[in-house]
Computed example of a mutant assay.
Amino acid sequence: MPAAKDIRVLVVDDQMSIRLLVRAGLQQIGFTDIVDAPDGEAGLKALLDRPAHLVISDYNMPKLDGLGLLRAIRSHEPIRKTGFIMLTGRADTDLVQRAVQFGVNNYLVKPFTVATLKAKIEGVFGPLT
């Protein structure tokens, strides 16, 4: 059972308001090591500079979307095992199937609650302490 404070999280979303909401939810759960990026390209660079244990990424972003980011992470050996939760306003089955095909660990639909966020993270890491 990992402690939330021991998990480094990268939040990637082109909307600052969503990044702040996710950060606030993570902090309520007990996460302290949280960084964010405004798009997939910046997220990938941040991850390569300093790997995280978990990426929570929006699907629909400029430059590099969530699926592109997921594919880039899964194809780069040093970071390929990084947990990945896709965050989107679209609960579209085609998108979910493609994300699963590329190795997504979980899926979170906006709007979300802190309890749902925690459950999705625990679906990746197991119960948090």
Rank of each mutant, 00 (worst) to 15 (best):
M1V: 13
P2T: 15
A4H: 10
I7V: 13
R8M: 04
V9S: 06
V12Y: 00
D13M: 03
D14W: 13
M16F: 05
S17P: 07
S17A: 14
S17Q: 03
I18R: 09
V22P: 11
V22N: 06
R23S: 15
R23D: 14
A24Q: 14
A24E: 15
G25S: 08
G25M: 05
L26E: 06
L26V: 03
Q28N: 15
I29A: 08
I29L: 09
I29P: 12
F31G: 09
F31K: 03
T32K: 12
T32W: 04
D33C: 01
D36N: 08
A37K: 14
D39K: 04
D39R: 00
G40A: 07
G40Y: 09
E41T: 15
E41N: 07
A42Q: 07
K45W: 02
A46I: 07
L47W: 10
L48S: 08
L48W: 10
D49M: 12
D49Q: 15
P51Y: 01
P51I: 02
P51A: 14
A52P: 11
H53G: 13
H53V: 00
H53Y: 04
H53R: 07
L54F: 10
V55C: 01
V55D: 11
I56Q: 09
S57Q: 09
D58G: 10
Y59I: 11
Y59A: 10
N60W: 13
N60E: 14
N60D: 13
M61L: 03
P62N: 04
D65I: 09
L69N: 03
L69G: 02
L70A: 07
I73P: 03
I73D: 00
I73L: 04
I73Q: 06
R74A: 07
E77C: 03
E77N: 09
I79R: 02
I79M: 03
K81T: 15
K81Q: 15
T82S: 07
F84K: 04
F84T: 02
F84N: 10
I85G: 00
M86D: 07
L87R: 01
L87V: 07
G89C: 02
R90T: 08
A91V: 05
A91G: 15
D92K: 06
T93L: 14
T93I: 15
D94Y: 03
D94H: 12
L95M: 13
Q97A: 14
A99Q: 00
V100L: 14
Q101Y: 02
F102W: 12
F102Q: 11
G103H: 12
V104E: 05
V104C: 13
V104L: 06
N105W: 01
N106F: 00
L108E: 13
L108P: 09
V109D: 08
K110P: 06
K110Q: 14
F112E: 12
F112R: 08
F112P: 13
T113R: 12
T113N: 00
A115T: 11
A115K: 03
A115M: 08
T116F: 00
L117A: 09
L117P: 08
L117D: 01
L117W: 02
L117Q: 04
A119P: 11
I121H: 04
I121P: 07
G123W: 03
P127F: 01
T129F: 05
T129K: 08
T129P: 14
T129S: 12
